[in-house]
Design a protein around this nucleic acid. Sequence first.
DNA 1: GTCTATAGGCCGATAGAC
DNA 2: GTCTATCGGCCTATAGAC
Lengths: 215, 215
Amino acid sequence: METRLAPAPCPGPVAEGPPSRKRQQVIQAAAELFIAQGYGAVSMDAVARAAGVSKATLYAHFTSKDALFATIVGEAARQGPVEAAQMPAQVENVEAALRALGGKLLRFLLEPRTVAIARVAIAESARFPELGAAFLASGPMAFQTQVAIWLGRLHAQGAIHAPDADLAAQHLGALLRGTLHIEALLTPGFAPDEARIEAAVQGAVGAFLRAYAPQ
Amino acid sequence: METRLAPAPCPGPVAEGPPSRKRQQVIQAAAELFIAQGYGAVSMDAVARAAGVSKATLYAHFTSKDALFATIVGEAARQGPVEAAQMPAQVENVEAALRALGGKLLRFLLEPRTVAIARVAIAESARFPELGAAFLASGPMAFQTQVAIWLGRLHAQGAIHAPDADLAAQHLGALLRGTLHIEALLTPGFAPDEARIEAAVQGAVGAFLRAYAPQ
DNA sequence: GTCTATAGGCCGATAGAC
DNA sequence: GTCTATCGGCCTATAGAC
């Protein structure tokens, strides 16, 4: 539900193994490898080598390659896209606020790391269903829920006309993603220039405001 | 590497090797396996077994697993989503026409086979860049180009107001996809009920028409 | 062209010393 | 906890008979 509003209330270790130094090395190295190359292309040997530990140490901390992968991607998905500060309760200029939010979202979605994580999550969601669900819930859905609340507030203020705030949030997100998102997912090294991003944001916000203008 | 760029005009041998019976068996079996399970999870043994041939025969027709995979997915991507017949030159009821088109597109995008192909293409686009590009060009982009032409015609007729038909087509597609597409990609076995699909189409077309109404 | 049989290598996971 | 060394298996790809 909430992305990154407050630090976790329970700071203790959660699942398996203490947060030792080698364990952190493993997690960081594995994250880089899995995100960059995907599940199948990364061997436990490669993880061990990159982390500077032996394979036996690897298996002392994670019971299997699957478990390691699930841990890595699960944590990576929990990095929320936009902070709540991006959606102020009171706005004087709706268009400017939407453009700021849209620019933040779209730029986040197109970051190479974000794209790589999404690609891995989509690729392995068939093998790890709970992983796909977790990514969906803590990523796109969490963001959309926040936006829906915000748009509902704007509607109550009369700044926009969106009786169904959930649908409006879905439409806003969809318009912003446009085709850039799928292009990025299918094109390794995709990096649109700033002008195209800004144009996409402007076009999306324009269409959204025409569709959801007050009266 | 033997990616096919242009669709074969008619029957007849295409790339390498004659279209023998065993070859067709291999292609069909490999397509099913790759689409269902992805590149890494499918072994050449499994393909040979499913096709009812030996591995040696496999390698007699395809030089490597990579080449076989590229052939399969390249052909799968070429199955266009919507025929041009779905976009008549003259429309009396714009909303009804958009709903028909949108329903067709969304239902196609959510078909299990379509989702599986998209998932595989996204998953392996890092390893096979030309594959991602081919999928993008012959899938989403081809459809969007057709829609843009159609919307441009509607604009000229005064049925809608879309001075930038390309942008309008992008927005229409985005609104239709909404969150259903990404949900399907991340959720194995995702099957939204008809009511939800119809509601999504109706909401998307409604928003599109408000944003692109003539005056 | 198609088969059987196998080469040769890399992978995930473990045993046992320290 | 961490290491070195290794096992058993499955993988891609090939050799040679027919």
